Simulated assay, not measured.
Amino acid sequence: MTPKKRRSILIVALLALTLFLTIYSLQKSNQYNNLQEVFEQEKADLEKELDEMIKDYTDVIVRKKRLSTRLRVEIVKMNNLRDSIKNLQIDKYSLIRKYRKKISSLERENRNLFVKVDSLSTANQVLSQENIITNEILLQKESINTSLTEKNIELEEKQKTLETKIAIGGVIKTSTLKVETLKERSSGKLTSTSRSNRTDAFKVNFDLLKNVVAYAGEKSVYIQIIDKNKNVIAPKGITNLKDGGKIQYSDSIEINYNNDRLSLVSLILVNRDDINKGEYTVSAFVDGVYSGATTVNLK
């Protein structure tokens, strides 16, 4: 074979090899581009799925604050997985299947967790409704108790008013007190006098008036004589009054009161040396209550 012919054959072979390599390179380039498109689509799909799952979890956290801790942990896992997928290079294309399995596992966990969330939500709604009913019952009871308390207070006030009226109506009043000052003669007989230096006794006459409201029974009547200086004349003792006060009395009489008019006489002997000129006040107290008074002047 001539050199010229061999050169021609070599050129043809080189051209064929070049054409083959060009076609092969184009095929590989197309396959790579196709693979790159598939890879990017796979990544985008996985990221989209994770974004939707993260959104679902975030919505549940907003509505179910009590479960937020558990759900936030799951969101952190999904965010980490999404970042891993986003940074995945094509030479790690084989990991796409692994990540898809992880996402499927998360989806199953999602379903189980959301079922629990719904169950808890339903239970909370039932409890909330029961609480509303319980609160309504308690409010009704409170309203009834308040009404009863107000009625009791009203009844107590009426009772006190009635007791006050009865107490006032039950006071035993006296007629006008009549006072006579007496001197003792040598015969022992007592005769009227208006002179202070001859007074040996005070004679007090009055009636307990009729009162059907007052309680009948044993009563104590006290007579008090005081001079112009508020000194008690011929003091016999001290007694308590119903208003909380105390008096020193000059005479006491125990009687049996049966609600009818009753006449009383008190004779109080005094030392004429203790009797001075001036005005004397004679007061009567019946059953611990002031009933009346009168005055007498001595020369």
Rank of each mutant, 00 (worst) to 15 (best):
D200Q: 09
I90S: 09
K116H: 04
S252H: 09
L155H: 09
Y32L: 07
A123P: 07
K299V: 06
A214G: 03
N258Y: 07
A13E: 12
T199H: 02
E279W: 06
E107C: 01
N152D: 14
E74I: 00
V171R: 09
E37D: 14
E157I: 02
Q159L: 14
V286E: 10
F202D: 03
Y290H: 11
V289F: 12
S220N: 11
L267A: 04
S8D: 08
G188N: 07
V265H: 03
K55F: 01
E130D: 09
G288S: 12
K189L: 14
S104T: 11
V289M: 08
V221T: 03
S94D: 14
Q125I: 00
I96P: 09
R272F: 11
K160Y: 10
Q36A: 09
G278F: 08
T295D: 07
R100V: 03
T134C: 08
I238E: 15
R198S: 15
T193Q: 07
L10Q: 10
L95Q: 13
L155K: 08
S121E: 00
V76Y: 03
T2V: 00
K64M: 05
G292L: 07
L15D: 04
V286A: 04
K203R: 13
T2D: 09
T149L: 06
I96L: 10
E218G: 11
I275M: 05
S143D: 12
S128Q: 01
L162A: 10
V212C: 04
R70M: 08
N197C: 12
V289G: 01
S25Q: 08
G288E: 15
R97S: 14
S143F: 01
A167C: 02
Y222M: 02
A234H: 05
T2W: 02
R272E: 14
V76I: 04
K189F: 06
R261K: 07
K299I: 07
D227S: 10
R82S: 13
S194W: 12
I137A: 04
D118C: 01
N276S: 14
Y99L: 02
E184T: 13
L241H: 13
K299H: 14
N110H: 05
T69Y: 00
Q159P: 05
P3Q: 04
E74R: 01
L26M: 10
I144H: 03
K92S: 07
G244T: 03
L106K: 09
E157K: 01
I226M: 04
K228H: 12
Y222I: 01
S84A: 13
Y32D: 15
E109N: 14
A13Y: 15
K230L: 12
K189Q: 14
E40P: 00
F206S: 00
K242V: 10
M78E: 08
G292S: 12
T193K: 00
E163W: 13
R272A: 15
S266Q: 02
R111H: 12
N271R: 11
Y24H: 01
R97C: 06
D59V: 04
N30S: 12
V282H: 05
T193L: 03
E154W: 08
G245H: 03
L269M: 06
